[in-house]
Design a protein around this nucleic acid. Structure first.
Lengths: 142, 142
DNA sequence: GTATTTTGTTTGAATGTCAAGATATTTGAT
DNA sequence: ATCAAATATCTTGACATTCAAACAAAATAC
């Protein structure tokens, strides 16, 4: 479907605005935790996966393993996560959250849920479902 | 309106996915320009404003003026923007794009428009309008 | 006219980032 | 079984980003 350039420009503009607002919100929210956004991002990904290799985590985060080594060193030092030798592959480590990291993860996820709740607070149930379907379609197209 | 926790969780999850996809896309897109994401972000903001003070730019970007001094030095050295003394306030500069920076800005905006076009390519016109209205409502609530 | 505030810069410290190179281990080919 | 290639991680060096704190110059307030 060929859309009007006006609608497309409006969409681009709304997406940029939305993205920037999320960025600011995330930054401000993370600040209270004493972690940096990048560190929290690592915790979010590890938290969804139980445990994963350095390499896998690097790929999911879109950084090199060299970058990740330093970041995991730091988070391990802070007690949020730990490296365990891989059972099968002696080159590799499995990274996973400690209970401290798990608490941080759960707290942050709750912030996300609260935000999600707030921003659609005045949507009707039907409108929300339509919006969810739209966003899902966009994500699948991306 | 009190929504189901299932819908809220789905919304939070879709937003995170959307945000990460934009991040990756932006990062990959900017890479081809030789600039860093932060530098491109500065160009995007200046480009929308014609010219603005260091302080104003810092606020819009959510960084301190100290951070900005270094970044603007760098971008000025690359020829993308320039400082002009403020007409009224001799403490201050107005930062604006050079023609080189303007070309960079236009090119990047076109990338955004192309992306916007692509991700809603298979929306009907009516669905797009509904989605736009939803996103606008969310932005205003944020 | 002096005191306060504002604007921008500088500096020092921590983090994030990559590319390139080193090491250890696994996998694949013969 | 051996040797080569691929893989996983770490290390290092270079640069970018970021903030806080300290500074200088100019504007504003009283």
């Amino acid at each position: 479907m060929e859309h009007s350039s006006y609608d497309i420009a409006r969409l681009a503009s709304l997406i940029i605005e939305f993205y920037e607002k999320i960025s600011s919100w995330e930054h401000a929210t993370v600040k209270g935790s004493g972690l940096t956004p990048a560190q929290m991002h690592a915790i979010e990904i590890i938290g969804q996966e139980k445990s994963l290799r350095m390499k896998e985590l690097a790929q999911k985060m879109g950084v090199t393993t060299g970058t990740l080594t330093v970041m995991v060193d730091k988070l391990e030092g802070l007690g949020h996560l730990e490296r365990k030798p891989h059972e099968k592959d002696r080159r590799s480590f499995k990274v996973r959250l400690t209970s401290k990291g798990r608490r941080q993860f759960n707290k942050h996820r709750q912030f996300h849920l609260n935000l999600a709740q707030d921003i659609v607070a005045d949507f009707s149930s039907a409108d929300l479902k339509i919006f969810l379907a739209g966003l899902e379609k966009i994500n699948s197209q991306f």
